[in-house]
Amino acid sequence: MNEPHEKFYTIGVVAKLTGVPIKTIRYYTDINLLPATHRTQARFRLYSTEAIWQLQLIRVLRQLAFSLEEIQAIIGGNRSVSTAIDWQLEAVTHQIHQLQRVQEVLKQAKETSHQPEQSIETLYELGLALSENVAERSHFVTEKLHALVEQANLPEEWRHHLLDHFTWQSPATFTTKQIAAWTEIVHILNDPAFTEEALRFNSSTLHQSTSQMNIAEYNQQALLLIQQAQSAALQGETLESESVQMLLRHWIRLIAALTQQAMTPAFLLELSAQLSPSSSERMQRFWTLMALLSGRDAPPSFQEGFDLLAAGLRFLISKPEALSTVLDDPSQEQ
């Protein structure tokens, strides 16, 4: 009994069977990805059933975004299917993350689209997060921070210290979370309200400094007092408690010594405004985002401590008898 002859199909029939355009099949054949099984005397290409199955495989792999070179390696046996899939999964994961980053930037840009004069510039600034130009990202943030320091009109030593501290180096690439942090930072840095808060938080006090206290000494003493205020707040200490009143006296004394100002009710009112919840919360949020961008742990929050100090100052202002105790306290003399 004779074995049945294998059936061959013309390129037009193969195109109908597989849904792959004739032009594409011809191209695959020309690059030897799908060699024609036979040719007629008129040189028309003929394809076997096995070739059709191979074409179907090529079609599926192309839909899965495999390159022609990768498909050639798989079909030729030069690369295992498992390895190829692993590589493709890695590439797809990267593409997903990239698309998520693009989506985050576009969503944020959409929020400013109602302001045509700002939207293009904002889109550029947001787009820096997707750029491979690390220097441009670093320059953008550093320039904004330096502008804040210059506007604050601080003493020369303090200004140089902050300019050095506010020089930021961007990581080479951003994660999706860092993209979200970047877009929020762009909006914060471009918000005039943030600039006003930052200047009020620093310059209204520090630009008046005529004492010999350096920034390291001030930072050390201020941090200790804020830590103590945070602890007192978390322990539920009342504003009238001796420990909180002592903290307030030390805080007032520190700033008065720094600025060489008299401890008047107006002075205390100014200190209270600097410690307003909106200002300290926004500053805390900003530095938390900056830490995330730099791949560091978020700085500790002293929000409750700041709130306690601000409330304590307002308490002193509203209670003349308590205020006089602080202002007349001989321990405040320098």
Rank of each mutant, 00 (worst) to 15 (best):
V60W: 07
W158M: 15
S294E: 15
V14C: 10
S231M: 08
W53S: 05
G127Y: 08
A257P: 00
S204D: 07
F44N: 14
E104Q: 13
P171N: 02
V92N: 08
A273N: 14
T18C: 01
I120Q: 03
R62Y: 06
L162Y: 05
L258S: 03
L327N: 12
I252V: 15
S67N: 04
L206R: 06
A273D: 11
E104C: 12
Q103E: 14
R79C: 06
E240F: 06
E197T: 00
M290K: 08
E70R: 05
R249S: 13
L247M: 10
I96P: 15
V134E: 11
Q95Y: 07
T205V: 03
N32S: 12
T40N: 08
N219P: 04
Q332Y: 02
A73Y: 02
R253D: 09
I255S: 03
G295F: 09
S138T: 13
I215R: 01
Q169Y: 06
F315H: 15
E156N: 05
L34M: 05
L269E: 14
Q115W: 13
T83W: 10
E69S: 10
A73E: 12
T195V: 02
A216L: 13
L247I: 13
E3W: 08
H146L: 09
H97V: 03
E132S: 12
H38Q: 15
K110L: 09
Y27F: 12
S211Y: 15
A172E: 08
E150M: 07
S48E: 04
F306V: 00
I58P: 00
R282S: 08
L163G: 02
Q56A: 00
P21E: 04
H187E: 03
Q245A: 02
D329W: 14
Q115C: 10
S272A: 15
K107I: 04
H160E: 14
P265N: 02
T24A: 09
L17M: 14
Q260P: 11
L145Q: 08
S119W: 06
T176Y: 01
E50G: 08
H94I: 01
F166C: 13
S278Q: 13
L323V: 01
P320Q: 07
Y9H: 11
V13E: 07
V105C: 12
M290C: 15
A65C: 08
F166K: 04
G295P: 09
A233N: 00
I255E: 04
S131H: 06
G76P: 06
L128M: 12
P277D: 10
Q260A: 15
A65W: 12
A291Y: 10
T37P: 01
E184A: 05
Q221S: 03
E184K: 09
W158Q: 13
I11D: 03
L17V: 05
I31C: 04
S67K: 09
L248R: 01
Q103K: 15
L61S: 00
V149W: 00
L206C: 02
D191N: 09
F302R: 05
S241Y: 10
H160L: 14
E69G: 07
Q245K: 14
A310K: 00
P35Y: 09
L206G: 00
S231Y: 12
S131T: 15
G312C: 09
F174W: 04
N32H: 14
V13C: 03
Q284A: 06
L225R: 05
I255Y: 09
Q95V: 10
E270S: 11
I215C: 05
